[in-house]
């Protein structure tokens, strides 16, 4: 029902906009590297290093498409000292290496003066390289399928976005998340994001900035984010990254609303 609703929304909006083709001005490429620390309060830190890339291309009129890929390398903490009160932990803190990689593709319609509606599908795989088992598969490998839909509304220097995402792990339970994101562009080269999440990511909030400095000649962007997830266990996630953009040199606001 939900997917039908989203598909209808896309078609109606895309059809009405066919007269003014401006979803993606030209094909946009970007690659990025990011690194971060995932802290479990009272426990140990996990580390992640990742590379990703995406292509955004115009299809017709307001209709655009995107293809992206990622490769993440995690050193996952597996220790939680506060539960070991009075206990002696092993001399070395155990870590678990997990490789996460995936591909995704999506369609969207966009009017740069109004907003964007998108739907996407992705497939990924996580592989544990320690004594770790994914519950969904019962093995060290987890195959994932990801369905997503989202909408953004452009309002002056503000963007309000909502998204829905469902990840299916083999035959296991689905992982659902909703988000509401507010973005502000104090200048054309700086964006500040505030996001809150629901469902399985409930009580999760994030603050992010992306900066496209002049001295990079609009070819690269730096970004950072802080996410706090407060459930039974509180996680603090700090990520920093750099992105390189191929092709047109445009400011960040323009890139977000007209190219990617």
């Amino acid at each position: 029902m939900k997917r039908l609703f989203l598909a209808g929304l896309l078609l109606v909006y895309g059809g009405s906009a066919l007269a003014d083709p401006a979803a993606v001005k030209s094909t946009h490429y970007q690659i990025g590297y990011e690194s971060g620390d995932i802290n479990t309060v009272g426990g140990s830190d996990s580390r992640v290093n990742a590379v990703d890339g995406s292509i955004t291309l115009p299809l017709a009129g307001y209709l655009g498409a995107s293809v992206s890929a990622f490769y993440d390398h995690y050193s996952m903490a597996a220790n939680f000292a506060s539960l070991g009160s009075g206990l002696t932990l092993a001399s070395s803190l155990p870590q678990c290496t997990v490789i996460d990689k995936g591909l995704s593709a999506g369609l969207f319609v966009r009017d740069p003066s109004v907003g964007r509606i998108s739907a996407g599908y992705g497939a990924g795989q996580a592989m544990s390289h320690c004594e770790s088992t994914f519950l969904a598969s019962g093995t060290a490998r987890l195959d994932m399928k990801d369905y997503s839909a989202g909408a953004q509304y452009y309002f002056s220097r503000f963007t309000i976005g909502v998204s829905w995402n469902q990840t299916r792990f083999n035959a296991f339970d689905r992982f659902n998340s909703d988000s509401l994101t507010g973005s502000w562009y104090p200048t054309n080269i700086l964006r500040v994001d505030l996001a809150t999440y629901g469902q399985d990511l409930k009580n999760t909030y994030s603050l992010g900035v992306e900066f496209q400095p002049r001295f990079f000649d609009n070819s690269s962007g730096l970004w950072a984010s802080y996410t706090r997830r407060h459930q039974t266990v509180t996680n603090n996630i700090i990520m920093v990254g750099i992105r390189y953009y191929f092709g047109r040199r445009v400011d960040l606001l323009t890139r977000d609303r007209e190219y990617r």
């Binding site: 996990s46 995936g102 996630i237």
Partner: peptide
Amino acid sequence: YSCGNPGCSQLVSGNSQV
């Protein structure tokens, strides 16, 4: 471990039992 972001491309540690 649980998913740390939409799409579960990020995993976060839950608590551990020692």
